[in-house]
Design a binder for these strands. Structure first.
Length: 586
RNA sequence: GAUUUGGUAGCUCAGCUGGUAGAGCAAUACACUUUUAAUGUAUGGGUCCUGGGUUCGAGCCCCAGCCAGAUCACCA
């Protein structure tokens, strides 16, 4: 076909469009689909496949000659003429299979081996395997295949890390961006990633079982809230059309769980997806999971005992031991944990005693320690800054920090011995907070005053203080809430410690990422410059290159890009003669 | 938000002072009936993140942007 105008070109390109966008290997795999169908093989069959066994279990419980039926992806293939070895990966691991031509093709027709298995099956395809268990000459447990079924064809090549004899991994799939964006591929090829998420699920069930055994009830509370309370953080805002009101995604579930204690439950807990519209980094994702539990007739001392029992139990369920490694640190979740008041901790690391000090004295002291302070900071905030700067990082082993200043804890009961303090603890591990608990404030009048104080702080410019008062929550307290202790645990943080991962993205299946830009389909459109060059050339069909360049009147760079574009699309071709360069339309 | 490193074949990565874009694996073809990072031979495969600029000539230099990582700041 001679291309004479732009429309001709469009026709050709539409036909070629598919092959322009797909890689070599992707095209080959699509062609194989057709060839399989031509052989009467459905690459995506509907029928169930009667799996009887799993890879790891066959290897662990070796039984010579056992008939098995497994299914999974083919992850490696070693053809040796009339016999081949391959590895099948199922949900539990991998096992080698031995495919012998005459075993799977007992008759004259060897198509199933020569064509289907050796040519049309690709790495990543799902296969069903029937066969018998045996050991090869080198002692590897394998399955001698008697029947091989294609269960699903893979059209896109997977990354292919390989492990050598020394256990060294080659070509590892490690790029975090690709791993997070294509977690499915990450999970297929990186078994250690799968392990993290299995541990994550174990942690949740361990905690759930611990609470259920203690007689507490798992509940669900609203995620869409008219007032996002229970913490100081910027919420995500949305809008309800029918009610025509703004709604917020919850930043905590505390106030709702306490309403349930008012309602008469002894103990309630919830694994709560919370949403905070703040910065993202290796320890913060916009949505994260907290666990909060409230138990009536208890105080924060009881809760400390409960927490250390809980965490020891969880660590053992997840890792089989209370000890774990986090980066350079060895930590032990075995109870009991060290307990120290915030005042003593600050004395220990700075020599400064915060007791009875005024706001100005605290500000001066903080300044003296080289801490950035400003006028919007109240007493609580100042103490928090001092603690965060000078003390927090020193607690590697699990340590309860107790008795926080009142200003920092608007939902916590005043300390029974010192009205400046609250009955609160945080649990620090490796210098990070993983749990936070109170003897909950149940005096409705005190609570109202604390909220009002928060409003004043918000007006003063402390952007973490909450500016709205949850009147309904106060009303519930007025009916009376029993003495109650509450605990919150950052589940993502905890699983980071239990799996030795410094990044929250590693313990979330799908961490938040900026949306990926999929290449806009490079349609048959030519760029303006390409059209310009094409039009000049089309009149002549063949021209001297320099002559064409001059007529186009483009800058060197733009000329270069345009002509490369045209040759790449296969509409123009440059030919060398002895004396000159000729460009012609194909 | 600041600093910094990176983006090259399906994957992992080289690429010299700026001069026709490379390797291993994967793919394609052939050989090989107990291999295991199988092996041997041959072949194909590229929007060098995007857009400008400098230059006779840019993967490389300059400017702007996109995406990600790391460090720091922020974060009850």
């Amino acid at each position: 076909m001679i291309i004479r105008n732009y429309n001709d070109y469009l026709c050709i390109l539409k036909i070629l469009q598919m092959s322009i966008e797909l890689s070599d290997q992707e095209i080959q795999r699509r062609e194989k689909l057709t060839r399989l169908r031509d052989l009467g093989i459905n690459p995506y069959p509907a029928a169930l496949y009667p799996v009887t066994d799993y890879s790891i279990e066959i290897k662990q419980d070796f039984q010579e000659g056992k008939e098995v039926c497994i299914a999974g992806r083919i992850m490696s293939q070693r053809d040796m003429g009339k016999a081949s070895f391959a590895e099948i990966q199922d949900s539990k691991g991998r096992i080698q299979v031995y495919v012998n031509r005459d075993e799977i093709c007992p008759g004259e027709d060897k198509t199933n081996y020569n064509t289907v298995f050796k040519k049309l099956i690709d790495l990543g395809d799902f296969l069903g395997i029937k066969g018998t268990v045996f050991k090869t000459q080198v002692g590897e447990t394998s399955i001698k295949v008697s029947e091989l079924t294609l269960l699903s064809k893979s059209l896109k090549p997977l990354p292919l890390p390989k492990t050598d004899a020394e256990g060294k991994v080659h070509d590892a799939f490690t790029d975090p961006e690709m791993r997070y964006r294509q977690r499915y591929a990450d999970l297929v090829v990186n078994p250690q990633v799968k392990e993290i998420f299995m541990k994550r699920t174990k942690l949740f069930s361990a905690m759930r079982n611990f609470f259920n055994d203690a007689g507490y009830m798992e509940v669900e509370t609203p995620i869409l809230q008219a007032i996002a309370g229970g913490a100081a953080a910027r919420p995500f805002m949305t809008h309800h059309n029918a009610l025509d009101i703004p709604l917020y995604m919850r930043i905590a579930n505390e106030l709702y769980l306490k309403r349930l204690i008012v309602g008469g439950f002894d103990g309630v807990y919830e694994f709560s997806k919370n949403f905070r519209n703040e910065g993202m980094d290796r320890t913060h994702n916009p949505e994260f999971t907290a666990m909060e539990i409230y138990v009536s007739y208890k105080d924060y001392n009881w809760m400390m005992d409960f927490t250390e029992q809980l965490l020891e139990h969880c660590a053992k369920e997840v890792n089989g031991t209370a000890d774990c490694t986090f980066g350079e640190h060895k930590i032990s979740f075995k109870a009991p944990y060290k307990r120290i008041t915030m005042r003593d901790s600050i004395i220990e690391f700075t020599g400064f005693d915060i007791k009875g000090k005024s706001e100005d004295e605290l500000r001066a002291a903080a300044k003296g320690m080289g801490i950035d302070v400003d006028d919007t900071m109240g007493k609580g905030k100042l103490i928090d800054e001092i603690f965060g700067e000078k003390c927090e990082g020193n607690y590697i082993q699990p340590t309860f920090i107790t008795d926080y200043p009142k200003e920092m804890s608007p939902l916590c009961k005043s300390h029974r011995e010192d009205p400046e303090l609250t009955e609160r603890f945080e649990l620090m591990v490796c210098g990070k907070e993983i749990a936070n608990a109170y003897s909950e404030l149940n005096d409705p009048i005190d609570q109202r005053e604390r909220f009002e104080e928060q409003v004043r702080l918000a007006e003063k410019g402390d952007d973490e203080a909450n500016g709205l008062i949850d009147q309904d929550f106060l009303r519930s307290l007025e009916y009376g809430m029993p003495p109650t202790s509450g605990l919150g645990i950052g589940m993502d943080r905890l699983i980071m410690f239990l799996t030795n991962n410094p990044a929250i993205q590693e313990v979330l299946f799908f961490p938040q990422m900026r949306p990926e830009k999929f290449n806009e389909q490079r349609g048959p459109e030519l760029t303006e410059n390409e059209k310009l060059v094409f039009d000049i050339l089309a009149k002549e069909q063949s021209m001297d290159l320099n002559n064409l360049k001059e007529k186009a009147g483009l800058s060197n760079k733009q000329w270069d890009i345009s002509i490369k574009g045209l040759t790449k699309h296969g509409i123009a071709k440059v030919q060398k003669t002895n004396t000159q360069l000729i460009i012609e339309i194909i």
